[in-house]
Structures are given as C-alpha cells and as structure tokens.
Nucleic acid binder design. Structure first.
Lengths: 338, 338
DNA sequence: GTGAAAGCGCTAACAT
DNA sequence: ATGTTAGCGCTTTCAC
C-alpha cells in the first residue's frame, strides 16, 4: 500500500519510446553538432523526452564526464549573518558557468573541518572555496591542497593559497574622507582589537587620510573598544567626555556605532548635527534600523563571493596559477548619520 | 607544463595493489559481514586503501545504490539572517542519518524557483525541504510534488504538504505571561501587519493570556506598526503619550522593539524600570546589543530545521505519510528589559 | 545519419 | 572464502 515513487525516466526509456538508439538521444539532448542528425529524429526525441518528463541524472553524467560541475564552499555558517552574502555572490557567479555550489558548514573545529572537506572531496568537487565570517588569517587542513582552493574573507597564514579579501585600508580612507568632506577636523576613532587585520587596515587608512589633509595626529582621539555595543558605548563616552571632544566618530564596526549612538543621545547631542557617526561593516539589521540611519562602509561580501568563484574557475582552467591575493573595494553607504 | 591533478584512486587501484578482487575491496570497505573474508585480506585492503589515499566516489556509489543520500533545501537565502539557523538545524539533523543537504537559494521568483528545484531533482535528491524566512503561506511549484517535500517556517496554501511552523500563539502567551509575572497590568501591544500569521498568532496568545488573568481588554493599548524600527518608534510613542500609558510594551518583533527603546529613552524613561519591553524573534544582532539587552521570544529556527529533516526522513521511510503540520515551541530569552 | 560498444566507479547477486 | 559478472545512467568513439 505504500506509495511507490516511480523510477525516474532514463535515456533508455526515451530512446525506446522514440524508436531510436540511446546514442541518438544523448546526442540530441546535449545538442552535439559533431554528428548530424535528421531534424525529424531530433524533434521526435525532444518531444518524447518532454512528454515523458525526462530529467538527466546529474550523477551519472558526472561519472561519465569525469567532471562534477561542483565547487565546494565551506563556511562557518553558525555565526554567520555574513556568510549568506558570500554564498549568494558565489552562487550567482557559479551559475553563469553552470557550476553548482555544495555548501558545507563547520564550527571552526579543525577536526570537523577536515571531515567536512573530506565529504566534499568524496563528491568530487572540482575546487574549494573557504569562507570566513570575519577577516583573518587561517590555517587550512592539509587535505584542502588536494584540489584547487581559494580563500574568501581570510588568507592563509603561510600564503600558500590564493585569497580574496576586503580592502580595509581603502575602507578606512573612505570613511575618513567622508567625515573630512563634511567639514570635520576632530575625528574620534573607535577601533577594534588591534590584532585583527580589519583594525590594522582601517587604522592605516584613517591616519594616512588625516595626514594627507594636514591634520595633526591626536592620540587622545583614538581608542580601542570591545567589539560590541557596550564597548562602543564606553569608548564613545570616553571620547565625548574629553575636554575637547571630537565632532565626529569613526567606529570600526556598526555594533560599536550602535553603542556610540546611545552615548551621544544620552548627552543630549544630536546625530549628525552635533556629532557625526560613521560605521563599518554595513550590518543591515543595525545600520538600516538605527535612528538616524547609519552611514557606514560596507564589507563587500557578495562581491568577494563572486570574485572567489572567478579566481577558482581561472585556476581550474589553468588561466591563473599564482597564489595571488585579490583585494575588493569597500563601498561607502550613505544614510543619515554624517 | 600544466599541473596535472592526479586522477583520484579508485577501488580498482586498491584491488590491484592489494592483490585481491574489486569485490573484496568493496566488501571490506563497506563492512559487509554477509560474506566472510579472511581477516588478513581485510587488513591488507584497509592498509592499502589508507596508503593510497583512497576516497570513495560518492556519485558512483549513488548510481550503483540508486540512492543519493541527499536532501535538497531550498530557501530565500538573500534576505535571510534567519535562513542560516534553519540550515544549521537541518544540516546537523541530516548528519545523524548520514544524509547531506544540497542547499539552493531562490529569490522567491516562481520561475527561478522551479528551475532551482529542477536542478535539485537532477541531482536525485531523495526529498525536498522548502524553508521560508518569515512565517507565511506559500504555493510550491508543481514540480515539488515529484518527491517527498516538507515545508519549514511556512505552510502550503492548500495544505497539501507537511509543514513545520513556530507556535506563534504560545509565543504570544509566553511574552504576555512574562510581563504579567513582573507585575504589569497595563501592557501595550505593538503588533505587526495583521495579515501575517505571526501577527495573528501572537495577538491571540496576548489576548487570551490577559483574559485568563482577568484583565479587561483595552483597545487603546493595541496598535499596529510598520515592521521596522521607525514603525516601532512611532507606535511606542503613541502608546507612551496616552493619558494612561502602559507600563510595559510587547513588541511583536525585535526591530520594532529597537524603535520603542528610542521612544522610551527620549521621554527620559528607563528600561525596564519605568517601562518594560519584550520583543519577539530574537534577532541576535538587535536583541543582544540593545542596551539594556532585550528580553524576547525566540523563533526556533534551528529546531524547525531539524524537525523538518525529521519529518522528511519519516516520510521517505514510510513511517509518516500524513500531511501533518508540526508546531514548534518558541522559548523565552531573558535578557534585561523586563 | 545511426547504432553498437566500451567505459566512468561502485555494488551485489551469483557462481566457484 | 573469493572472484566473475551484470548493471546503475550517461557519454563518446568508431564502424556501418
């Protein structure tokens, strides 16, 4: 009595119904011109295939072709509001090459990571994309070397893999320039833990832009905060309570900017009237919903995902071989806080 | 001169090196006890396989087994801070059955959706999970019927598919009860667009809990807002400016609670001292970073993902056949706003 | 123009 | 206990 799922229709079925050989069906369905087929035959095959609801078996095809058309994407999906955008960018880009993404998640547990990649390799993925949710140095399991691999939003500690990373420094410049353009000269910088590549790059961009504008460096205006709203609140508070407080705050991430908003409002100051704020990351949920909307520098996750596939494809087809690191621009997103 | 990727080692290779037949290798590697093999042979095969770095070809195995071990998960990944958790829950649960998830994303464009499912079926997925990012009625493309399908965080308009959805009503109860327990009697309710299942369910829970507590319904205390921070701000403002303002606000989502925070703080009131706030959704980025942290009812995405796979597996193995709808509890997350 | 045949890597029934 | 064989669905070469 159990509902038996009918067995999928195969090429053999199509061939039989159309009264031709399996070869003919294959040729027609794959549009091979190498061999000339009678238009009549071609049409009949197509018709029968449609009628029967023929659907190619991707696995069988991969076996015969010795080509899976798959890339593996491994990412720390748990912690990842960002992962989604990388996935989207990668998926869309893969689609244009008619490649598909096998997405696997890890929890940055190295053992699990190896196991996950192992599974991907069993599926015979043609290449691997390894995406991090925050920009950092990583160490891939050895097993990743068995197949072309590209890092996204992270880089290999020893530089053995090609990588795609955000241009933090240019992002820092961009934020600073925006504040400068709005007339600010005393800009407070609430930075992240200085160990992070993000903190380093953004800071360099900040300082070099200031220098180029002929603004002397004021150490009091730079402060490190815990990368949370509370951290931003504390840091911003300290800055605002300075004898000569800044008129603008560059927060190295949106969460800290969220805290900074509180500190500013608490002092009866208005954004951007009394104090301008600019963030970094463009975490939609925060930046778009803060009041006023937060002007921020966006991390180009989608673009990085796409670029990653680009690079991977180039490597697989042999057009690129270097372990080059590609840098992606961080665009400014204007909202209403500057 | 191009780096030739070595062809993966196959069972045949292992057999040759071990001096046994391919059958023997298959038997050993799959731990088949049906046929007795000499321990010595068994050990030799294992050793050779390890030495050669043999890795099974999942596709070939699927072909021979007529079983892919895959489920397809289609979701609107673009807009989805939530999708991630559903994916995680589903993936972890699938893992225990040694099933794998093929994740595909759509942008709710019906044509694209059909195409995406088509691809999944070409991979011969054994079943389909269709996950929405917000709880609602959906209409699946006909093609989804070709294979067992379970809806997650949504339900079929005609009830033809089994589904897993959050228990909005119990969630509404839970929030209200929490406020009641804190001693509040005048509770303002900032609800979502009343067309949404979420709004309907949460509202019912709210009202029935109030009624059971013997609190008369006060229409002035219920208001609909646009589902954004601005909407929450406006709605909360209206409530707070009432002649007899509420002492607590139940916001039907965290974004609106975010706006409510602003409205409250602007009036010099303190949370939760003067006004308590409870949200819904538990959007980490907001709820955890708001100051004070937002107490909220969590949408059980991870559990729903897991339950979805559960149901799907049951259907595939014929243990469940009904188009039942499973309801998942929404737990309360205490932070500091009540 | 069309079809027979071999092979992709793996499984399993069957014979030895 | 071990090996032979056919077959999973598809592709492609090569002879007709």
């Amino acid at each position: 009595m159990s509902k038996t799922t009918p067995r999928p229709v195969t090429m053999k079925d199509v061939a039989r119904h159309a009264g031709v050989s399996r070869t003919a069906v294959s040729l027609v369905l794959n549009g091979r011109d190498s061999v000339a087929l009678a238009d009549e035959t071609r049409a009949r095959v197509l018709a029968v295939a449609a009628e029967l609801g023929y659907r190619p078996n991707a696995g069988a095809r991969a076996l015969a072709n010795q080509r899976s058309d798959w890339y593996g994407l491994v990412t720390e999906i748990v912690t990842a509001p960002f992962a989604v955008d990388i996935i989207k960018g990668a998926q869309d880009r893969a689609h244009v090459d008619e490649k598909y993404l096998l997405i696997a998640s890890t929890e940055s547990d190295p053992a699990a990571e190896t196991a996950v990649i192992e599974r991907l390799l069993e599926q015979r993925v043609e290449g691997l994309l390894y995406a991090a949710t925050w920009h950092r140095a990583v160490t891939l399991p050895e097993i990743a070397r068995e197949v072309p691999t590209v890092l996204v939003n992270c880089f290999d500690r020893e530089g053995r893999f090609p990588a795609v990373v955000p241009d933090e420094r240019a992002g820092g410049r961009r934020a600073t320039e925006r504040l400068l353009a709005a007339g600010h000269r005393r800009i407070g910088f609430v930075n992240l833990d200085p160990d992070m590549p993000a903190a380093v790059g953004r800071r360099i961009g900040f300082h070099e832009t200031l220098r180029e504008a002929g603004i002397a460096n004021d150490e009091n205006l730079e402060i490190y905060g815990h990368a949370t709203a509370d951290g931003g609140y504390a840091a911003a508070s300290a800055l605002l309570d300075l004898a000569e407080p800044p008129t603008a705050l560059f927060c190295a991430n949106d969460r800290m900017a969220m805290g900074a908003y509180d500190a500013i409002k608490e002092r009866g100051l208005r954004i951007p009237h009394d104090v301008a704020v600019i963030g970094f990351d463009n975490q939609e949920l925060i930046a778009a919903y803060l009041r006023p909307g937060l002007t921020t520098v966006a991390l180009p996750f989608e673009t990085m995902g796409a670029k990653g596939v680009d690079l991977l494809a180039a490597i697989i087809t042999g057009q690129s071989t270097a372990t080059e690191t590609v840098t992606v621009d961080c665009p400014l997103l204007e909202r209403a806080s500057v």
